[in-house]
């Protein structure tokens, strides 16, 4: 039932490497599901002063850290490279300069130690973060929400992805950051917005972009503009809207659209499991609402713990384990692909 019959060898040991944005991470995962280590070095403190991630600076940090983080991951897992069966690395999408460091480190490692190499899609990784929590069963629907992505992905079996809908403009995390900046919150704004939303009332009616009746696509740029206009008009009238009210109203609109569209897709495709993926899956408002709705409908659901929502290499190793069993290996010519597609 829902199992596609693929078995991952319990002893399979995969080293994962992830450098697609501003986190340098390495991890060892056994049997596709057991995290032996997951070392994440965040550069966020370094980028804060610029109000966002600066690609060149991210790349510089990655090259300084990469071997140290890999060594740390092996040490914490209490294994050596000789115990590792393959090296899995994020090949895209992401910042090209940042990706290049991980990809070239993985290739060097694979060549020096004679290990197979696996190129993993970053979003596949985010989805597989759930496999580290609970065994994935199919068909499943994944709501992928992050700073760069907003997608509904349908999976009928391991390693196969069909995108039902995606954002036509801003990713949901991007919309959060932009609205946060408008009301003067520090970078990264998402967590601050989430916190404020819980302290305020969603008393302002903000638009919901439903698009065409049968569409599973998203659009958040109109919502963002509407927030800016609302603030501007209030100011003209000499009124001040508390930032908690803005945050709560914005979040209500976002969650309403995300959850409604997700549930419509669940019904249409008769999926039996819903999984959340991506950095915005850390949003408390979204987690609470999705859990509530799934419980009402008796739908199986997985949400990764916070540490597995944000970028990390364990999720890359998990997705890489499935590719290993399917024999999907990369060769020496593996390259960083900033615009890599999920449906291959």
């Amino acid at each position: 039932m829902g199992d596609d019959g693929m078995k991952i060898n319990e002893e399979l040991m995969i080293l994962g490497i992830e450098t697609s944005c501003d986190e340098t991470s390495a991890s060892v995962v056994r049997g596709g599901r057991e995290i032996l280590s997951n070392v994440v070095s965040s550069q966020i403190e370094s980028h804060k002063r610029f109000g966002g991630v600066v690609p060149e600076i991210a790349s510089r940090h990655h090259v300084e850290q990469v071997t140290y983080i890999i060594e740390q991951a092996l040490r914490e897992a209490e294994v050596t490279m000789d115990d590792v069966d393959a090296v899995a690395v994020t090949e895209g999408p992401g910042l090209v300069g940042a990706l290049l460091v991980g990809v070239n480190a993985a290739k060097a490692l694979a060549f020096a130690k004679g290990k197979p190499l696996i190129g993993v899609h970053h979003i596949a990784g985010h989805i597989y973060a759930n496999h580290l929590v609970e065994e994935l069963t199919f068909p499943l629907l994944s709501l992928v929400v992050s700073g760069g992505h907003t997608e509904l992905v349908l999976m009928d079996e391991h390693g196969k992805y069909e995108i039902l809908g995606e954002t036509r403009d801003d990713a949901v995390g991007e919309a959060y950051d932009k609205v946060a900046r408008t009301i003067g919150l520090p970078y990264p704004g998402g967590p601050h917005m989430d916190r404020l939303a819980h302290e305020g009332e969603a008393s302002i009616e903000l638009p919901r972009a439903w698009l065409e009746a049968d569409s599973f696509d998203f659009s958040f740029s109109g919502l963002k503009s509407s927030v800016i206009t609302t603030l501007h008009n209030a100011k003209q009238r000499g009124e001040e809207i508390p930032e908690e009210t803005i945050a709560a109203s914005f979040q209500a609109s976002v969650i309403d659209v995300l959850v409604t569209k997700t549930m419509r897709a669940v019904e249409k495709h008769g999926v039996e499991r819903l999984v959340l993926a991506g950095g915005v899956a850390a949003n408390k408002g979204l987690r609470a609402r999705i859990s509530e709705v799934c419980e009402e409908r008796g739908l199986k659901m997985t949400i990764p713990p916070l540490a597995l929502c944000t970028d990390n290499a364990a999720m890359i190793a998990a997705a890489g384990s499935v590719m290993y069993e399917k024999g999907q290996f990369a060769d020496d010519r593996l390259n960083a692909q900033p615009g890599l597609e999920l449906e291959r």
Partner: peptide, 10 residues
């Protein structure tokens, strides 16, 4: 960075 990453990792 490509050369340095490859060299130091090897």
């Amino acid at each position: 960075r490509i050369g340095v990453t490859t060299g130091k990792t090897m």
